[in-house]
Design a binder for these strands. Sequence first.
DNA 1: AAAAACGGCAACCGAATGGTTGCGTGTGCG
DNA 2: CGCACACGCAACCATTCGGTTGCCGTTTTT
Lengths: 110, 110
Amino acid sequence: MPRAEAARFDPAPVFAALGDPTRLALLTRLSDGQPRSIAGLAADSHLTRQALTKHLRVLEGAGLVGSERSGRETRFAYRPEPVQDARAYLDRVSAQWDDALGRLKSFVEG
Amino acid sequence: MPRAEAARFDPAPVFAALGDPTRLALLTRLSDGQPRSIAGLAADSHLTRQALTKHLRVLEGAGLVGSERSGRETRFAYRPEPVQDARAYLDRVSAQWDDALGRLKSFVEG
DNA sequence: AAAAACGGCAACCGAATGGTTGCGTGTGCG
DNA sequence: CGCACACGCAACCATTCGGTTGCCGTTTTT
């Protein structure tokens, strides 16, 4: 049996997770590679800890961050794969468009 | 006066628009460059015309498609800019991550 | 041992979403 | 002219979303 397909990338949940300013800000902060606790992240935010928790769970659900409990705190860390996949997805859309444009130009120009 | 800044790109609405499977499918179909009418798009979809209309308006709101009325039908066409901007945004996130990884490695390795 | 910090769980709330149906209107065709 | 097609608008509905508050358990700190 062929080795298990890497669970084909599903773009919609990732884009949905990125589609919120708060989550986007969280991800940007975490993308410096440093894991942070929920309280740490909530410290310089006007939102509640629980609100942050919910957002972090959404990001986790999309695979954009991972969580690990350590003692009394839960640290969240950036995970790069989904972003790469999303980039690749947009690349394909772009490529299809470029192809279409190319064909159109050669049609118009003769 | 310096020429007007190109209205700084706001990523969240674009990602939000992409965060729905139906919309993603619509955009993919339109990214072949051919404008299509609402009825045309609704034809091979299990959804209602109005449902499609709403999704198309969302895409339009994010700048991902443009609409133009022609006679009795409204044609929607793919617009590439937001996708490029979104790609660039993800590139920056990726780059920040790569930088962080680089610094971490040099720290660990000496 | 007591207090404080970190966080999970559940309930609740208003607003936004995704979808539907019904109706009215402009456009095009026979 | 008259009918059918392609839409826009509005109302309505169930569900999800973003956010809050309150409470309880566990891990640190003092």
